[in-house]
Design a binder for these strands. Structure first.
Length: 563
RNA sequence: UGGGGUGUCGCCAAGCGGUAAGGCAACGGAUUUUGAUUCCGUCAUACGGAGGUUCGAUCCCUCCCACCCCAGCCA
């Protein structure tokens, strides 16, 4: 894992938001003796950018108020959950820089207690077993504008309910035979209060409890009670659970739970050109549109990490986005900006040529070469320098040459002089072409008085400085360029998300060269390829053939002006 | 005449009755051996709309409009 720094180690100021204001007010008023939050993922997929917002919020608040944040797996639906996801989630939360300490919990840890509380509800007349078939139950629930109807089983005797519920637990009934329902109000305007299901029969193997259970609590019955058991003071979730709060509170009030947690909701994160829906991300992986959950184009923490984004950049992004209750769509440019701002101060500079064009220096002695010094970081002299080789045959970027340049093209063109960074001034004298008219090489001359890239005695200036590599020791590499997975800012707005999948989100360049210093780059460690972008080695690479991922490009005002 | 939310600059987002923070983007300009970085500067007489209360309203009230969520034995 490339990024092991923790939030504590980073320090930094945190913005204010309505959640923090509520917590602060509760602390000030003495309503809570300590702040306890929780991040409660269901282990049915990988964590993504949206989860990062929740993680930073929950762990962040706990840290700021010297409280604690639990990692709790909301594992109440065994048919969707897997150990693979449980492991990945823990890895990703740690990578993001947060530590739950001893507070790793699972809703499944509370199955026995939850079961007892379900019986409590039955005994107090607040819950009943309903044998109504699922489709009929749906019909009886009414619609958004019409009230529902009471189930014929609603007034079964307590003893009968208890016996039936125990039969459910004992495995005497098949899936779907019946459910346990809370007895609330079938006419409520809030659908969640129309006798919600608390338990269903699921003959399935659970990743943690195995076959110990064949009935499982629903989210509504498990979540608030788990919060109460753990002493959560502020149960923060996303807006779509707002309608569940009355049920959350109802259950807490009708059960002998040990504490009184409160639920608060914030708007989930949306980012342009990406999708943060577990259902769709799962489809992308399952149908092979990406190489896996950690494909660098994926908005998953695993994918983002593999692309080379440091955890600190994600935290910075989340902090810039803020926390509010208004649905919004954040410009992905904000993420790119946070990544650049995080990487720029420290990423070592290197040279790499993505699309090589041979450059031959006619007046440089054949067979000769020399070693020059390249600065590792222009703003951080502490990083020092590294030796680079200069010779008669070099590679420069195809984009840095134009035979017939437009007005503001400062780079190489016939007759034009440029600086080769840390090398020499060179002037293009002529070009070589193949039979198809493609430029195959540039023939140049160099000025020996500009060694190191310094201006010559006559004070001549050049308008461009190019990156380059000596053909003699350039290391062949594969470089993968990624762009948005979707080709519109609001994928799926027209209905079919898959129809908006971009066909060109992955660009694999195979004839690339990188400087020798890059040969053994540790996987995931950020470097800046000068004038190109931030990159990191991908695990797919080998010692003699490294593979690099572009994390994010550099700002390019020339490219922008060009279009 | 179902319930619950939200509407402040192109995109996020502060603001909590006293005269519109900040970030991203954009656009100028300076410095620059990365057309990068950095640095300066520009960018809401205006807070969904209409009324009202007030000396004064983005902040309070009323009505209206738009958008989001809810009818899983998913979370």
């Amino acid at each position: 894992m490339a990024d092991s720094d923790t939030v504590e180690a980073k320090g930094g100021e945190v913005g204010r938001d309505f959640i923090r204001d509520i917590v602060q007010a509760d602390v000030d008023a003495g309503r809570v003796s300590g702040v306890v939050t929780r991040f409660p993922p269901e282990p049915n997929g990988f964590l993504h950018l949206g989860h990062a917002k929740s993680i930073c919020l929950n762990f962040g608040v706990a840290n700021e108020f010297a409280g604690r944040c639990h990692l709790r797996f909301d594992d109440t639906n065994p048919v969707k959950e897997e150990q693979l996801f449980i492991d990945a989630i823990q890895r990703d939360v740690k990578w993001l820089g947060f530590d739950w300490g001893d507070n790793l919990h699972h809703a499944s840890d509370y199955f026995e207690q939850l079961y007892e509380w379900a019986e409590h509800l039955i005994r107090t007349g607040h819950a009943y077993v309903d044998d109504t078939a699922a489709d009929q139950m749906r019909a009886q629930r009414g619609t958004l504008t019409e009230p529902g109807q009471n189930s014929p089983n609603r007034y079964r005797a307590v003893d009968e309910n208890l016996g039936r519920f125990r039969d459910m637990r004992a495995g005497k009934l098949p899936n779907g035979a019946c459910v346990l329902r809370a007895k609330i109000d079938m006419a409520s305007g809030n659908m969640n209060l129309r006798d919600p299901v608390l338990y269903r029969i699921l003959h399935a193997t659970h990743p943690r409890t195995g076959n110990a259970w064949c009935i499982y609590p629903t989210y509504d019955f498990a979540h608030g009670q788990s919060d109460a058991i753990e002493g959560i003071t502020h149960s923060v979730c996303t807006l779509e659970f707002e309608d569940h709060k009355p049920l959350y509170d109802w259950l807490i009030e009708h059960l002998p739970v040990p504490s009184r947690p409160r639920q608060y909701e914030f708007a989930r994160l949306n980012v342009t050109y990406t999708v943060l829906s577990k259902r769709i991300l799962t489809t992308l992986v399952r149908d092979g549109h990406v190489s896996g959950w950690d494909d660098p184009r994926m908005p998953t923490l695993a994918g983002i990490r593999r692309r080379g984004v440091p955890a600190a950049a994600l935290r910075e992004f989340v902090s810039r986005v803020g926390v509010a209750r208004a649905n919004s769509m954040v410009d992905v440019a904000m993420l790119d900006s946070a990544i650049r701002d995080t990487l720029n101060p420290s990423a070592p500079r290197r040279m790499a040529v993505l699309r090589p064009l041979k450059l031959i220096i006619e007046n440089y002695p054949e067979g000769a070469s020399e070693t020059l010094a390249a600065i590792d970081h222009p703003d951080d002299p502490e990083q020092g320098t590294r030796p680079i080789t200069f010779g008669r045959e070099l590679y420069v970027e195809q984009d840095d040459f134009m035979e017939n340049p437009p007005k503001k093209f400062y780079r190489l063109s016939p007759g034009n002089e440029v600086r080769l960074r840390y090398g020499y001034y060179v002037t293009c004298q002529s070009i070589e072409k193949d039979n198809d008219g493609n430029v195959t090489a540039l023939r140049c001359t160099y000025d020996p008085q500009t060694r190191g890239g310094n201006a010559p005695p006559d004070g001549r200036k050049v308008k461009a400085t190019l990156h380059w590599l000596a053909a003699a020791d350039a290391v062949p590499a594969e470089i993968r360029l990624y762009s948005h997975l979707f080709n519109r800012p609001d994928p799926g707005a027209d209905g079919d998300v898959m129809a908006d999948l971009a066909s060109d989100s992955l660009d694999v360049l195979t004839g690339c060269f990188v400087e020798p210093a890059l040969a053994g780059s540790p996987v995931g460690e950020a470097v800046q390829f000068e004038r190109t972008g931030y990159f990191c080695a991908d695990p797919d690479g080998t010692a003699d053939r490294p593979v690099f991922n572009r994390t994010v490009g550099l700002r390019d005002s020339y490219a922008k002006a060009r279009v």
